[in-house]
Nucleic acid binder design. Structure first.
Lengths: 227, 227
DNA sequence: ATTGAAACTTACTCGTGCGTAACCTTACGA
DNA sequence: TCGTAAGGTTACGCACGAGTAAGTTTCAAT
């Protein structure tokens, strides 16, 4: 039973926490980071609604009104978490990107970067992201992010296909991109739950699952439903 | 912008609702179904936490205590929704299954059945399912469901591979199954948001994206990361 | 006609937890 | 050494919405 279904029903009050932040006087910038660290942790463990501001405050070594003073309401705090984490992800990906590489290498780099990020933030990103995708006030923003990613991938796929002299209907491209994104999300969750899995290996698995197919598709091979 | 990011921020009080259930006296069995219909609708639109029992009651043509009397607490009600909808899904899939068919046909049937279901319940299943996957009390049950599906697919893949005389490490099989499931979820969301898309077409798109790759894999072709 | 149970209502209680008002205290530049 | 602002606290208001107690109407069977 190594599978902790996302918001891991962790009722243990504290257990072995990553050491509550220091209680002394600390400059704002630093304290804000501690608050965000705490918030990511708590939101991940409990889920947005079950997370409680007092716990986040306590974990960041401070009392509740400080959190409000620095980072605003619960919703704003959650969004701040989301933004910080996705900024980190984007930074990681940007570092890995290289438009001069051949298509499969680009995809490989992207996936590797993504899974390495997820692996490094095992119970931050995936959980936050998944929450945000369904929870009312955030879904809009996150849906936009996701759509942007899908669009980037769609364009890349289109580019790769044009290089091969092939062309595919827009919706088919979108479907491919969605497949890729959905598969990545699914494997990311898995990765987050499996501490021993190597991110690079996960990326390779996914490459194996989708690239071969894409490659076939580019050659014009396709599967047809029976009559 | 035709994309309504899951819980569609629908603040309009009622608008063109599928006609509130009749207010008169109605036998229990029937009323329960109306309640479930209403609940599915409201939970989908608002999300579990923002859904409010009075609205569900009103929509089902009855006052709140009736809902409690028939279907229990909010959580129990949500679970009841989930169970009804997944029972419907399973029924749909069971009808489509046929173990004597070749692997690709089986997969095709399964996907077709799944997407047809999603298409037919455009803002029931996907939304509920996604909520349930992240929301604290339900995630366990739904994670189990999902894992069961992944396992079934893993077994089928294994069977298909053995038929070809090939064998793959368990984790690789799991990864393939997760890819398939994740991709399906992703496309299901898309389908739910695109009223004009034909479910069969979506299934075909996914077959194209994954089957060709799987086929290659079965032949022993695989993608390797660069040094 | 009468009874009783099933269908349904109004009108509450009450916990929870976000958000804040009002108040300390330590650092440090003038 | 004093003023002030940044860092910090305690203690509370208050809305919201789940859940319920107590009662009313309708129907169907005897």
């Amino acid at each position: 039973m190594q599978n902790s279904p996302l918001p891991s029903g962790d009722d243990a009050p504290a257990a072995a926490r990553p050491a509550d932040a220091p209680r002394g006087r600390v400059p704002r910038a630093e304290r804000e980071q501690q608050m965000l660290d705490a918030a990511v942790l708590v939101f991940s463990r409990r889920g947005f609604h079950h997370a409680n501001m007092d716990e986040i405050a306590e974990l960041s070594g401070v009392s509740k009104p400080m959190v409000y003073a620095y980072l605003g309401t619960k919703e704003e705090l959650f969004i701040a978490c989301l933004r910080r984490e996705s900024a980190r992800l984007v930074a990681g990906l940007a570092a890995a990107a290289d438009p001069t590489l051949p298509p499969d290498q680009q995809l490989w780099r992207g996936l590797k970067g993504f899974f390495e990020f997820v692996g490094a933030h095992r119970d931050g990103w995936s959980v936050l992201y998944r929450q945000a995708r369904t929870q009312q006030p955030f879904s809009v923003e996150v849906a936009a992010m996701r759509e942007a990613v899908v669009e980037v991938i769609t364009d890349r796929l289109d580019g790769a296909l044009r290089l091969e002299g092939r062309q595919v209907k827009p919706d088919d491209l979108t479907a491919m991109a969605l497949t890729l994104v959905g598969a990545s999300e699914s494997l990311a969750d898995w990765l987050a739950d499996h501490p021993d899995e190597d991110p690079g290996r996960t990326a390779t698995r996914l490459m194996n699952a989708v690239w071969l197919g894409a490659d076939q598709l580019m050659r014009g091979v396709s599967w047809r439903p029976p009559a």
